[in-house]
Amino acid sequence: MLRRVNWPAVALITPAVIALLAVGIYPLLFVLDVSLRQYQLTKPYLGTDYVGLQNYLSVLNDGLFWGSLGRTALFFLLAVPAEVVLGTLIALFVDGTRCRLCSAVLRVMLVLPIAMTPTVTGLIGRLLFNRDFGLVNYLLSLVGVEPIAWLGEPEPAMITIALMDIWQWTPFVALVMLSGLALVPQDVRESGHLDAGYGWHFFRNIQMPYLLPGLTAVLILRTVDILKLFDMVFVLTRGGPGVSTELVSVYIQRVGFRIFDMGVASAQAILLLVLCIVLSRAYVRFFYRQIEA
């Protein structure tokens, strides 16, 4: 069967496709090519010959790379569960409160941290967590805690970047959960209150099924965004002290643009891309199976 091609429609969609091929796919092919080469910008005399999978092998044997992935996982575990729990609680509060003014004002406020420039979030972190005059140490001093060198010690630095991430992204979780709660039909809500009261049972049996798709979305996006996370951490700690807060994207940036080993950095970037795809696929499979079951 011959299909008639709708040329005007093709003409409308083609520019976007060409643009994304040029700025999306071409760089991917390029980075794949570079990842198979010796490519050190600071040593041009070495040339840029193909070296097979050598870059990948050196990445897989690179303790710093695995370390950066481990730190990224730790950061995820520090930030995301807190964001999910707090965000869900905030959503339940905003959805359930009888104070309509509170609900309306909070819905507006929750938008602000999400839109904040992450670079500026990092600057604010520097200010609030400053050892000598930061607000956090001052508030802690009121309850008798000695000043903490938040950005000078490995563990406190990790906690600092996690806290700033929690500040910025808990409202996002809350708003996603709120849009889930808005889908609970009014009659289900009312009969649910009769059957299950107002506490845990109502949440577990009536509201939670409507929150699961949002939870999946949040986990996918937070995973991907934490694997991407660069700006806030770069400004707040530069990965330091030492490499204690050097998350994977910060590390790849250092290898690529401060050590200028493009071959190895490209291999790391490819591995990161594969990880992103595998994880988001896994989430979708796991959670949608849960929902359908």
């Binding site: 976007a16 496709v17 994304l20 700025v23 999306g24 071409y26 760089p27 991917l28 390029f30 980075v31 570079v34 991907v224 694997l227 991407k228 660069f230 994207s249 790849i252 940036q253 690529g256 643009f257 493009m262 950095a265 490209s266 970037a269 490819i270 990161l272 891309l273 992103c276 795809i277 988001s280």
Partner: peptide, 24 residues
């Protein structure tokens, strides 16, 4: 597939694009 391909750019880490873009 086309739609998914366009949207999937959301999942690509900027560092993956930054390296080749810098060289080009």
């Amino acid at each position: 597939d086309l739609w998914f391909w366009i949207i999937s750019n959301r999942f690509i880490s900027p560092i993956v694009v930054a390296l080749p873009f810098f060289l080009v």
